[in-house]
Amino acid sequence: MALLEVTGLRVRLPRRGGWTSVVDGIDLAVDAGEVLGVAGESGSGKTMSALALLGLLPHGARTEGSARFAGRELVGMGEQQLRDVRGKEIAMVFQDPATALHPMLPVRTLLTEHARHHLGISKQDAGKRALELLEQVRIPDPARTLHAYPHELSGGMRQRVAIAAALACGPKLLLADEPTTALDVTVQAGILRLLDRLRRETGLAVIVITHDLGVISALADRVVVMRGGVVVEDGRTSEVLTSPTHEYTRSLLEALPPAHRGSAS
């Protein structure tokens, strides 16, 4: 059985006295050590699906369907239980590292606070672990970076800190929403390699949400293509990107410059 198995997930938001569906019955599954790519343009429901899994939807939103994670049902789970899953077993990395990190807390606190809460470890142990995490995400001079504040770091560094914070409790599943979109290609390459290493070495399952089919091609084993809240195509990345069956997937690939498609270079 898959680590996460989502069936018929629907998300509705209140709108002008009625409801509007932003995710309209999607199915997806991801195994330990597997990377699932979720592709689509903005407004396709990719981010809303991820937020629904963690109970982070905007106020008033309704979630239906089923999301079984390691034998438990996430949809309709109580806030108290969900809080134990969130950050500890399922962690999330957001697009913009400038707003995802608390600006007034040093890196050390960002990396230790939730770990101490979830794992119940001492301040010293958490500090040691924070140092290891920074080394793991290849931050140069980790001892000094522990005392830095987010504004003192570059965008690439901040995103690496955000990933380190997400990994602090040793999650089984990482939801990464456009994790490299705000970064330069060189830094992006480093982060993609890091995620790939983590899934191979620690069996981390990753759901990477991105509009960038190049990122999906590099990292994901399987891909689901979303449009208007539904999955229009899914399959192995190598097959979907080389012989797409759905018109929309084809149009996404055709919108890319040939250099991105890789065919002409």
Binding site: R138, P140, S154, G156, M157, V185, T186, V187, Q188, A189, G190, L192, R193, D196, D212, L213, G214, V215, I216, S217, A218, L219, T237, S238, E239, V240, L241, T242, L253, L256, A259, H260, R261, G262, S263, S265
Partner: peptide, 20 residues
């Protein structure tokens, strides 16, 4: 070399360590 290509080949782009 750092640009990932959407060719479905699963090739990780080349890393350039460090920052500007």
């Amino acid at each position: 070399a750092a640009v990932p290509r959407a060719d479905g080949a699963g090739t990780l782009p080349q890393d350039l360590p460090g920052d500007v």
